[in-house]
Amino acid sequence: MKIAVLYGGTSGEREVSLSTGKGIINALKKNGHEVVDIDFHPDRLNEILELDVDLVFIGLHGRFGEDGKIQGLLDMLGIPYVGSGVLASALAMDKAKSKQIFSQYGIATARSKTYRVENDNLRAIEEAIKQDFKPPFVIKPNQEGSTLGLTIVKDTTEIEEGVKKAGESDDTILVEDYIAGREVTVPVVGKQGAEKALPVIEIIPKSDYYDFDSKYKPGGSEHIVPAQLPEEMTEKLQKHSVLAHQLLGCDVYSRVDFIVTDEDEAIILEVNTLPGMTPTSLFPDSAKKIGWSYEEMVEKFVELSVVKG
């Protein structure tokens, strides 16, 4: 097949996307496909408008890639692509909206509230957060990935900087209770209605929490696959992962992040519709555990997308 790979982009996750794109491109070539690689930029939309390919593999992360915008353009052009469509992508990217959906269907989430950031209301937001939350809590952009713009507030003096930091990435910020526990993630793959969860991964970051460096720098974190959890918890995480994937309308693949508390609660954090596919990424680690090489995993996504198309 002739497959275009979109990678790079303009979001804060550009460097990660470059690495993801490189991995996908190499895998597709090894699998015998003809590859057109595009370092995507919204100023160069003609590169997309003039595409003549069988399929697009989206290796973008963050804005203009994971939020449904590029999916909408490809839909209008009638070009099939790997992964979730416009609505599922947009919902997963909007943490507040997706949390509302999860809560309605019995998937536990951290208590949270959103605040609209404008230049002249930062002080008012700080005061509102002080009234609504007691440390520790988390301030982060409502629509951003890779923990960019995230602050764990341990003292109220950190609120001002946390609001500014999150506000640089999004005009809506999300504040939620800090949930202590073990960080785990569950890859989901399959055609709609027949998805399955892959082995649960526990993430042990070398820093205080699973931040950008922990995710993408070699040695930044340790991945335990499968996670050493009671069978009942493993089953619950896998069941909730597939349910979350389906509730948002995701397609082909996603990765669902959780915190498992000391009280044995599984608290969902978010669904990633375009999870990282770098050499240190989580999804390939889990796929390897069920016998899929990186190349086989990528081909599985292609096959599912062709069936979908």
Rank of each mutant, 00 (worst) to 15 (best):
Q228W: 03
R123G: 13
D67T: 05
M277E: 04
P187S: 05
V53P: 03
A166K: 03
Q131S: 13
L304M: 14
I139R: 12
N31C: 14
E118I: 00
E66G: 06
Y7V: 02
M233V: 09
E265A: 09
K206C: 07
E235Q: 15
K308C: 04
S103P: 04
A166V: 11
I290K: 03
P230L: 04
E66T: 01
K30C: 04
S89Y: 08
V36A: 06
E202V: 06
Q192F: 00
V56H: 01
M93D: 09
K2E: 12
F64G: 02
G12L: 03
K206M: 12
R111M: 13
K217H: 13
I139A: 12
G83V: 01
K130H: 09
A227E: 13
E183P: 02
M233Q: 06
T273N: 05
V260K: 12
F64K: 05
V186I: 07
N26M: 13
A92I: 04
S84L: 06
V306K: 14
K95L: 09
G85W: 07
K29L: 12
S112Q: 14
G219M: 10
N46H: 10
G12T: 14
I48R: 08
E168T: 09
V56E: 03
T10Q: 09
K130S: 10
Q246C: 01
G149D: 12
S293V: 04
I152L: 13
E47L: 15
K288L: 13
E118D: 12
A197S: 15
R44I: 06
P42V: 02
L45C: 09
G32Y: 10
G8Y: 04
F57S: 09
D67Q: 14
Q71I: 00
Y216M: 06
A96T: 02
T151D: 09
H240V: 01
F40E: 08
S221Y: 01
I101T: 02
Q100Y: 08
R14C: 06
M93Y: 08
P275H: 01
A244K: 05
Q246H: 03
S241Y: 03
K196N: 11
L55D: 01
L73D: 07
Y105L: 08
S207K: 15
V260Y: 08
N119H: 12
L148D: 10
Y216N: 10
S103Q: 15
E222V: 15
V306L: 15
T114L: 11
E295N: 14
S146M: 07
T157V: 07
I70P: 01
T20K: 00
H33I: 04
K154H: 13
D43N: 11
Y216K: 06
L91I: 15
K69P: 03
D39Y: 01
D132H: 11
G309C: 01
F57M: 07
P279A: 09
E47D: 15
L174T: 11
